[in-house]
Amino acid sequence: MKRFIFLMLAGLPFNTFAHTLDGVLDTPVSTVNYYYVDCGSDPDTVSLYFHIVNNSAVGAPLVSAQVIKGNYVGNFTDPINGDAGWSRDQVIPGGNGLYSVLVDKNGSGIVSYEFEAHCYDSLGEHTDGEEILPIN
C-alpha cells in the first residue's frame, strides 16, 4: 500500500501488476522512463513479447522503447502517432529474469504511450510474476 501511495504521489505509472502500462514522458528530449519487466521461473520463462503505442497527437515526437536483456537490445518505435497502430512486435528469447525497458522520444514535447509486455513459457502460456517495475 505504501508503494502504491508513493507511486501515485510521485506521478509514476502504478499499474505494476498488469501486462500493459500507460505512461507519460515529460518535455525534455533527455527524459527516459525506465522499467524492469520481471519474468518469473514458474514455469521457466522462454521469451518476452513486447510492443508499444504512441497515444499522442500527430505532430508530437515519435515514441520509442528499447528492450534489453543481457547483451541484446531491440528498438521499438510506433511510426505514426494517434492512430490505432502499434510498433512492430517481437518475441525476445531472453529466458527468466529482468528485462530492462526504456521509453523515450525523438524530440521535445509531452507524449503519452502504452506498452504491452508478456512473459511466455515454452507452451506460450504466461509465466508467474510478470511485474512491471518503474525504476526512475
Binding site: 533527455s30 527516459v32 525506465y34 530492462s100 522520444k105 525523438n106 524530440g107 525504476i135 526512475n136
Partner: peptide, 10 residues
C-alpha cells in the same frame, strides 16, 4: 544507462 539512471539524446 548507468545504474538506475537513463538518459536519451538526439
Amino acid at each position: 544507462i548507468k545504474g538506475h539512471v537513463a538518459m536519451n539524446t538526439i
